[in-house]
Amino acid sequence: KLNEKEKELCQMVRLVPGAYLEYKSALLNECNKQGGLRLAQARALIKIDVNKTRKIYDFLIREGYI
């Protein structure tokens, strides 16, 4: 299910792929509902370490998901 970049992200932030996909889905759904997504909203949405949230958020922006 994951592409190579997503696999690298999961290894870097030490997330299991299932958890990453869950977080990605939640962030994309919220982004679609709101018409955009700020980091503060992402942090409130997924209750994990803020540094991990930041890396996931930055990755999703860089890859054009949000």
Score class of each variant (00 low, 15 high):
45 L>Q: 06
27 L>T: 03
12 M>C: 11
30 E>G: 09
34 Q>S: 11
5 K>R: 12
55 K>Q: 13
27 L>Y: 00
26 A>S: 08
6 E>G: 01
13 V>K: 02
38 R>I: 09
50 V>I: 13
44 A>S: 13
26 A>T: 13
41 Q>G: 05
28 L>N: 02
53 T>D: 04
21 L>V: 09
5 K>F: 03
17 P>H: 07
8 E>T: 08
46 I>Y: 06
53 T>M: 10
39 L>E: 11
50 V>D: 15
24 K>M: 03
17 P>A: 03
53 T>E: 11
8 E>G: 04
55 K>N: 13
5 K>I: 00
12 M>S: 14
45 L>P: 05
36 G>K: 09
18 G>S: 15
20 Y>L: 02
57 Y>W: 08
32 N>Y: 09
57 Y>I: 07
55 K>G: 07
12 M>Y: 11
58 D>S: 06
66 I>H: 10
37 L>A: 06
65 Y>F: 12
16 V>N: 15
57 Y>V: 08
31 C>G: 07
2 L>C: 00
38 R>V: 10
19 A>W: 01
42 A>G: 03
24 K>C: 02
18 G>F: 07
59 F>S: 02
48 I>S: 10
48 I>E: 15
22 E>H: 08
38 R>N: 15
60 L>H: 00
39 L>G: 06
53 T>P: 03
42 A>V: 05
4 E>Y: 07
21 L>I: 09
32 N>R: 14
41 Q>K: 10
26 A>M: 15
33 K>R: 13
31 C>F: 14
23 Y>G: 01
62 R>Q: 13
35 G>R: 07
24 K>N: 00
23 Y>Q: 00
2 L>Y: 01
24 K>H: 02
5 K>A: 12
59 F>P: 00
47 K>C: 06
30 E>L: 11
41 Q>Y: 04
64 G>H: 07
29 N>A: 15
8 E>K: 11
33 K>N: 10
23 Y>R: 03
49 D>T: 11
1 K>P: 04
58 D>E: 13
16 V>I: 11
18 G>V: 08
48 I>C: 14
40 A>I: 11
22 E>F: 06
4 E>F: 11
19 A>F: 02
10 C>K: 02
59 F>Y: 07
34 Q>R: 13
5 K>S: 08
42 A>C: 09
1 K>L: 13
33 K>M: 06
3 N>F: 03
55 K>L: 14
64 G>V: 03
45 L>H: 05
39 L>Q: 03
43 R>Y: 13
48 I>G: 12
65 Y>S: 12
8 E>Y: 04
63 E>A: 04
48 I>P: 05
38 R>F: 08
13 V>M: 15
31 C>V: 08
49 D>H: 07
40 A>C: 13
8 E>F: 05
45 L>W: 01
45 L>A: 11
21 L>C: 08
18 G>R: 14
29 N>E: 12
40 A>K: 11
57 Y>T: 05
12 M>K: 14
61 I>W: 09
61 I>N: 09
25 S>P: 00
15 L>E: 03
11 Q>S: 14
49 D>R: 02
25 S>Y: 10
9 L>D: 04
55 K>V: 14
29 N>R: 13
9 L>M: 08
44 A>N: 14
39 L>R: 05
10 C>E: 00
37 L>G: 07
39 L>I: 11
22 E>V: 07
57 Y>R: 07
40 A>P: 09
53 T>G: 05
19 A>G: 03
31 C>N: 09
60 L>C: 01
42 A>N: 02
18 G>E: 15
48 I>D: 14
35 G>S: 06
38 R>Y: 08
11 Q>V: 05
6 E>Q: 00
3 N>L: 04
57 Y>C: 05
28 L>F: 06
13 V>F: 08
66 I>D: 06
20 Y>I: 02
66 I>R: 03
55 K>F: 07
11 Q>G: 09
39 L>A: 07
53 T>A: 13
44 A>F: 03
44 A>T: 11
46 I>L: 15
34 Q>T: 13
26 A>C: 12
6 E>N: 01
8 E>M: 10
8 E>R: 14
19 A>L: 09
15 L>W: 00
19 A>R: 14
58 D>C: 02
36 G>Y: 09
31 C>Y: 15
65 Y>I: 14
45 L>E: 05
40 A>M: 08
3 N>H: 08
47 K>M: 05
48 I>F: 10
65 Y>M: 14
33 K>F: 05
65 Y>W: 12
16 V>Y: 12
62 R>H: 11
56 I>F: 02
66 I>C: 05
29 N>S: 12
4 E>R: 13
14 R>T: 10
41 Q>N: 08
25 S>T: 14
37 L>S: 06
27 L>M: 11
3 N>V: 05
28 L>D: 02
15 L>Q: 01
55 K>A: 14
13 V>D: 05
60 L>P: 04
62 R>Y: 05
65 Y>G: 07
47 K>H: 09
5 K>N: 06
66 I>V: 09
42 A>R: 03
3 N>E: 08
36 G>F: 10
43 R>F: 13
45 L>N: 05
65 Y>A: 13
10 C>G: 01
10 C>W: 02
41 Q>V: 05
34 Q>V: 07
16 V>A: 15
58 D>N: 13
61 I>F: 09
15 L>V: 09
45 L>V: 11
22 E>C: 07
11 Q>Y: 05
